Amino acid sequence: MTTTTTGNDPIEAMNAADFAFTRRAWVDAAPALVYELVSDVSAISRWSPDAADVAFDPEAGPWTGAWFSGRNRRDDRVWTSRSQIVRADPGTAFGFVVGGAENGIVHWKWTFTPQGRGTVVQQSWQLLRLDPVLGTTHADLDALRRHMAESAEITLTALAQWLAEER
């Protein structure tokens, strides 16, 4: 059940499930290729305006349970995050949870659906739990969601453009 909140409501009055979005883009490539690109987390900085220096842990790769780290930036802040892959279905879906599957904070999910000669790529973001590190008011979390949605739109557009130019 979603509760009605105002911009200044404290974190305790909010529901994490209220903070989510999905964005889609068509790209000129087969689902298997798009999955391969997205699941190579070290390549995300090619397209994402917020991620850099992303790498799997030693001996890890794009499979369920694997961990990776990355440097993130937003406004004037820079931080490192640890994420765990929670879904790795080649050509179909790829997902990870920032902070790990057990007690993570954000779930990112990508799905790949064939359409014509290309693929509809869907990128979703879901806040899993409330944490003051993300914001302490509804307005803070709305701003975070807006920023992340804009970042996803930029990422999807850049991925589509990169595929069009690199192929």
Rank of each mutant, 00 (worst) to 15 (best):
V86I: 08
A52D: 15
Y35M: 02
W125P: 01
L163G: 04
L144I: 05
G116Q: 11
S45W: 15
N72L: 11
S81K: 01
L128N: 02
A32C: 06
S124C: 04
G99D: 08
I105Y: 06
V38D: 03
R73Y: 03
H138V: 07
I44A: 08
A93V: 12
P62L: 13
H147K: 12
A29K: 11
Q122D: 15
R74S: 09
G70V: 04
F112D: 10
M1G: 05
A16G: 00
D142G: 08
W110A: 14
P31K: 01
P90N: 10
I85K: 09
L134M: 09
S45H: 15
G95Q: 05
R23L: 00
A143N: 11
G104F: 02
A25P: 09
R167K: 14
D28Y: 01
M14S: 04
L33T: 15
V133N: 00
H107N: 14
H147N: 13
G118M: 07
G135E: 05
G91L: 13
R74H: 05
A60C: 14
D53F: 14
A152T: 03
N8L: 06
E153S: 15
D18T: 01
F112W: 11
V120W: 01
R82C: 11
S42I: 02
A152D: 05
R117C: 05
R117V: 06
F21A: 01
A17M: 04
S39K: 05
E102T: 12
W110M: 10
G135S: 12
T137R: 07
A25V: 04
R24A: 07
A139Q: 09
N103M: 02
P132H: 11
R167A: 03
W47M: 03
A16Y: 01
R77P: 00
F56K: 12
A13C: 01
T64E: 15
G91Q: 12
G65R: 07
W63R: 15
M148Q: 11
D53P: 07
T157K: 10
P62R: 06
R82Q: 13
G61A: 03
S81I: 02
D9E: 10
R71I: 07
W110C: 12
V106T: 13
S81A: 10
S45E: 15
R129Q: 11
R74I: 00
V120G: 08
P49H: 14
A149V: 07
T119V: 04
W63T: 13
W108C: 06
S124I: 05
W108S: 08
F56G: 15
Q123M: 11
T113C: 03
D76G: 11
A43F: 06
A52K: 13
S42A: 13
A51P: 01
V98S: 14
A164N: 08
A51D: 10
A93E: 15
T113G: 12
Y35Q: 05
F21M: 01
G100S: 00
M1P: 00
S151F: 05
E165N: 00
H138G: 05
N72Y: 03
G7V: 09
W63H: 14
A143W: 02
W67C: 14
G104I: 00
F68N: 13
H107G: 10
I85D: 08
T157Y: 02
S39I: 02
Q126F: 03
R71L: 14
I154R: 12
A66H: 07
A60T: 07
E153W: 02
Q84W: 10
V98F: 02
L130M: 09
T2I: 07
M1D: 00
G118V: 08
T22L: 04
T111C: 14
A43K: 15
T119S: 08
V38E: 04
Q123K: 04
T3S: 10
